[in-house]
Nucleic acid binder design. Structure first.
Lengths: 222, 222
DNA sequence: ATAATATTTTAAGGAACTTTTAAGGTTTCT
DNA sequence: AGAAACCTTAAAAGTTCCTTAAAATATTAT
């Protein structure tokens, strides 16, 4: 499970993130409402945890904006005040749950799991890594259409992020197990994909491991 | 007449209930979706008034659940936002009427009376998405007449909005499961339909997903 | 029943996109 | 430097899709 946590109190955030990650929840973090909104619009989160009092844009503002854009990612609102007013406002704007500060991180984790369990009927249709999200249904990468071969390659890479995939592996998975050793196929398509990653200004990139293959990784990693 | 009213804003609920009871309508009250659903399944209500934004289960969830269980009690949906999306979703899941907040309690009472007077088992006759509404009874799309094939295709698309439907799927659903692989049938009719969507100046459009099929989507989405 | 009208099928050219192929250029390693 | 691995590009070949219009069929009105 991957969630977005928007919170301006860094110390609190650090502690909460630490506990959540330990319990197997992957957390992206934003420090203010604006940054939070920019991340929240991406369809890569299973849930969003929104503090109400935030710099730049309040949690309520972020939530309203999201819902107005038709984004239905489940949201848990956090409020320092246990003011009923805020709770009501949040729920009215389409929040899915509400938690008063201070809270036990374990409870947050539990509520997240409850929230994400709900729509169990849809098979996973999006694979994401870093700032990339690939939609299996319509073969779009961050809403950019890919051709079949491009799609199959990025799918393989996204399913094995930060792992080296050999040309032979990609050849057999994308072109079929018989495809005779045309390594150049793979090279050409890796090149196409790199261009598209550029175009998307993605932080992720495809690294060449000379003699071994290719590896998808985030720009700021080794 | 006895109705169920599901609403989480207590102050509003109190006021509305007061007025309805005064005008001779007996009101049961539930505070969240879960409680509402538990009551709504009982065959004792002439109608149900459902707020959309509710804790635990949304009004949409409650409605869907009811209809899935075959319970046909008339439902009026309430929404704080006057968002067409919500209205349409509600009507699609089998709501019988819709009222935007804020509303005059007198109007709610009038609609309730109108609804209860109606024959209850009216089969769904309109499917809608975005700014499109397709009438199954007379095969009109936004009041524009369609031919049988056109109608069947748009019906399939409207029943699976924002999902990719393959040509094979459309062929078998519209022409019959035997129809030999004449993909061109589908292409021709998609072309006709696109012309009609243009003519209607609809925000919705039919997108081609090369190699996969077609997808109905709202112009300003992905 | 016949004509007028509408719908569906068929067909074909071409537009748009994908994949393959090939060739020359760059990087990396010894 | 030389070889191997890799990158990039673009043209050629291959597919899929779009559009149109005429032919065939069905429907409706007279």
């Amino acid at each position: 499970m991957r969630i977005l946590y928007v919170e301006d109190e860094k110390y609190l955030a650090d502690a909460v993130i630490h506990v959540l990650e330990k319990s197997g929840i992957s957390v992206d973090y934003a420090e203010d409402g604006e940054e939070g909104l920019n991340l929240a619009v991406k369809p890569i989160y299973d849930a969003i945890v929104l503090d109400i009092m935030l710099p730049k844009l309040s949690g309520i503002d972020v939530l309203r904006d999201l819902r107005e854009r038709g984004i239905k990612t489940p949201v848990i609102m956090l409020s320092a005040l246990s003011q009923v007013e805020d709770k009501i406002k949040g729920l009215n704007y389409g929040a899915d749950d509400y938690l008063a500060k201070p809270f036990k991180t374990a409870e947050l984790a539990a509520r997240l799991r409850a929230l994400v369990r709900r729509p169990a009927l849809k098979p996973e249709t999006v694979i994401s890594y870093s700032d990339l999200y690939y939609n299996l249904e319509d073969r779009t990468l961050n809403d950019l259409a890919l051709s079949e071969k491009e799609a199959n390659i990025i799918e393989s890479l996204l399913k094995n992020p930060e792992h080296v995939l050999s040309k032979e592996y990609l050849l057999s998975h994308v072109w079929g197990s018989d495809a005779s050793g045309e390594d150049n196929y793979v090279e050409v398509y890796i090149s196409y994909l790199r261009k598209k990653l550029e175009k998307l200004k993605s932080k992720a990139k495809i690294k060449t491991i000379r003699g071994l293959g290719y590896k998808l990784c985030s720009k700021n990693s080794s």
